[in-house]
Design a protein around this nucleic acid. Sequence first.
DNA 1: GGTAAGCACTCATTGAGTATTAGTGCTCGC
DNA 2: GCGAGCACTAATACTCAATGAGTGCTTACC
Lengths: 349, 349
Amino acid sequence: MAEKDENSRTLNEREQSILHHVVQNYIQTAVPVGSRYISKHFESGLSAASIRNVMADLEEFGFLSHPHTSAGRVPTDLGYRFYIDYLMEMQQLSDEDKLKIQRRLDQAKDAEELLRETSKLLGKISHQLGIVTSPHLGSGIFEKIELIPITSSKLLVVISIRTGIVRTIMMEIGAEIRRDHLDEVSRLMNERLSGLTLIEIRDSFLDRIRDVQGEHTGLIRLFIESVDQLFTDSKEHDKVLIGGTKNIIDHPEFVDPKNFRSVIELIENEDIIVHLLEKHDELQKGFVVTIGSENKDETAKEYSFITGTYDAEGVTGRVGIIGPTRMNYSRVIPLVDYVAQTIAKMLSA
Amino acid sequence: MAEKDENSRTLNEREQSILHHVVQNYIQTAVPVGSRYISKHFESGLSAASIRNVMADLEEFGFLSHPHTSAGRVPTDLGYRFYIDYLMEMQQLSDEDKLKIQRRLDQAKDAEELLRETSKLLGKISHQLGIVTSPHLGSGIFEKIELIPITSSKLLVVISIRTGIVRTIMMEIGAEIRRDHLDEVSRLMNERLSGLTLIEIRDSFLDRIRDVQGEHTGLIRLFIESVDQLFTDSKEHDKVLIGGTKNIIDHPEFVDPKNFRSVIELIENEDIIVHLLEKHDELQKGFVVTIGSENKDETAKEYSFITGTYDAEGVTGRVGIIGPTRMNYSRVIPLVDYVAQTIAKMLSA
DNA sequence: GGTAAGCACTCATTGAGTATTAGTGCTCGC
DNA sequence: GCGAGCACTAATACTCAATGAGTGCTTACC
């Protein structure tokens, strides 16, 4: 179908078929696959020697590689890329799995728990690391704001978003502020900001509120100064939930303690993941797959990231999985896709 | 000093000394320590053979054990216990470490971040897993309650505690409730509950509020039904933050992938940790150490838990570390102690 | 009775050497 | 272009002996 694509044109029918088999076999067995094996099991028409020739070509193109001379072939990141883009057939998610997901996630009592459960569930079903980023509220629609004095110097700001998600921020204030002033200011903001997204508010707050004069100036100025903190997802909040560590370590790649460390590194250093997922956010288009060295970070060079977007009325985030480049893409991608849709629905409800 | 204690009386001077050396040496090197080594390095007066005799006795008492015939001795959990209770000398925390702790924790912007940083920092300095439980608010002193309608069926309850900690709970309500009713009810509760601890409130809520009649009955009934959810730390909330995984895996005990799995198991299954820490809460007395099989859980049988309490005006929790039974107790205990005191101060401020 | 020297014994660890095996690359005849 | 054959390579697995750390026990000494 992708005949005219540049990449695919460089491989003829036979080369594609053999690459396909090598990748699939390697994904299943984690053992470098040899020419003889392919010949016996799949391409019965061809002898091992012929397949060796094709493999040598594929290696030259950069799709396969050799751990050492006398070993079988292993896909490179480029090999996986080609496989995913042109060869792979998606595997339907089983009804059983779908049901399991529904049932498990239905039990979550709030958004926080839903996301946490999702990460664990993804990890469990995929046998990889499940990841979920907490929602970006930026495109969520402002419903209302409430100001609650906590102590003389602390003010709790509650911003509620249309989907029913609530954000609370503790603000330091200079001096105590009278309750009726707070009420007046919040009334004012609710009036003027209703229906906008948080991003719109952040960008136009000054214009919309500037004219307020009189006894509220001090309080208003405080809000103007804090507008970023209030209406932008703080870096802080850009958290990623990771679940299912114990599922991933069964993979044969983790007999090498080096890989073990790298996965721990990833889990502890959420920043790395957050950073790599920013690229996913840019790419968007349903689900995104980045394979091994396509991830710019050194620690993540052996891992693939697969994520999809969930969008609940503007409140968006990503769900997905992380695992060794050798993973069952055809199974995992539909899984991520389905889970993303499911939690989007649940968050909107 | 503990001469008359039952346990210590069973060991004479020499036995204690040798046990001491074995434990210390094993903690440092992770290598079973032999009689010859002890003779050479410490008890110069005695020959290896004599030391062997003493060791054999210590083994009979259950303080030492033998991985296999031709290996040196290794402390048992009981051996560590004796060491900690009677032999060990605490190592003062260095000023440098103290400064580092102060500086790092001072940067935290809120309680949540403070606790998270603490867990990481503890992990890093101790080279073990750092753990921090989120505060139990039960003995915290009620300051006030605020009720904020979010949607027609959702009510945000904000309870603030004297130290400035705030708890927010989303409550489902049957039907929309008029704002002035909410205000009236919260005013009432604030009036009647002020100064009590959350536990006191939970236990006496009905008595204190029962007499309210008239148009608020419905709302009041709702609160009476939800009193547990509002004023008790939900199981849910009994979270434990774990930090520093990458620090712990350098220990030689983790060359065995079996141990690797068990530590992952612990990290993923917070429940296990929470449960084991309940026992610590019972024991209290500053810091608590449980060693290996003293922890009832199978997964934790190879690990020691050391925790201390932090108490910020009734808001309490535990900080500590988890690591293999072979750990530098004399260094880690003062560390945990100091950190506990530090964050208690910071949370109270 | 405590101490230590001596000796036999145990068992994990190491390293060398060897065989095995999976697989390649290349050549050559069909 | 295909495939059979063969030399070559490298990892892996296995055996075997040597090493060495350390114990347990017996016995002699003070």
